[in-house]
Amino acid sequence: MKIRVGYGYDVHRLAENRDLWLGGIRIDHSKGLLGHSDADVLLHAICDALLGAANLRDIGFHFPDTASEYKDVDSKLLLKRTLEVISAKGYRVGNIDATVCAERPKINPHIPAMQKVIADILEIDIDDISIKATTSEKMGFVGREEGFAAYAVALIEKE
Results as ranks from 00 to 15, higher is better:
G6A: 11
Y7A: 09
G8Y: 05
Y9L: 08
D10G: 04
D10Y: 12
D10T: 07
H12P: 00
R13Q: 13
R13I: 14
L14H: 01
L14F: 07
E16Q: 12
R18D: 04
D19P: 06
D19G: 00
L20N: 02
L20Y: 13
W21Q: 02
G23H: 10
G24E: 04
G24M: 05
I25N: 10
I25L: 10
R26E: 15
I27A: 00
D28E: 14
D28W: 06
D28N: 12
H29G: 01
H29E: 14
K31I: 08
K31S: 11
K31Y: 13
G35Y: 06
H36A: 11
D38R: 11
D38F: 00
D38Q: 14
D38S: 09
D38G: 03
A39P: 07
A39H: 06
A39Q: 09
D40G: 05
D40V: 08
V41N: 11
L42R: 11
L42F: 01
L43W: 07
H44F: 09
H44N: 15
H44M: 12
A45K: 01
A45Y: 03
I46H: 14
D48F: 05
D48A: 05
D48S: 07
L50I: 02
L50F: 07
L51Q: 08
G52L: 01
G52M: 05
A53C: 05
A54W: 05
L56V: 05
R57A: 09
R57V: 03
R57Q: 07
D58Y: 11
I59Q: 14
F61S: 14
